[in-house]
Amino acid sequence: MNILNYFKQVPTWSPEKVRRFLKEKSPEEYNLVDVRTPKEYERGHLPGARLIPVGEMANRLFEIDPHKPTIAY
C-alpha cells in the first residue's frame, strides 16, 4: 500500500447516501467493502460487506468487479 494514498482526495458519500443507495439497489449491483481488521468486521459490519483489510487491498483487487460502483468503509 502506498502511504501517499492516505492523503489523496477521493469521492465520499455520507452514511445517509449509502443507506439510500443500498436500499434502492440489489446486492449484485455494487461492491461493498469493509477495509478494517477481521476483529472489527466480526463485531459488526454492513450486511453483505466483503472483508478486505486496507493493507491487503492492492493484492486482492481481483476479488471485486471494477465495473460496479464500489463503496468502501
Binding site: M1, N2, Y6, K8, I64
Partner: peptide, 8 residues
C-alpha cells in the same frame, strides 16, 4: 477507507 478508495 479513503486510502482503500485511492488504491481502487
Amino acid at each position: 477507507s479513503r486510502a482503500a478508495a485511492a488504491t481502487l
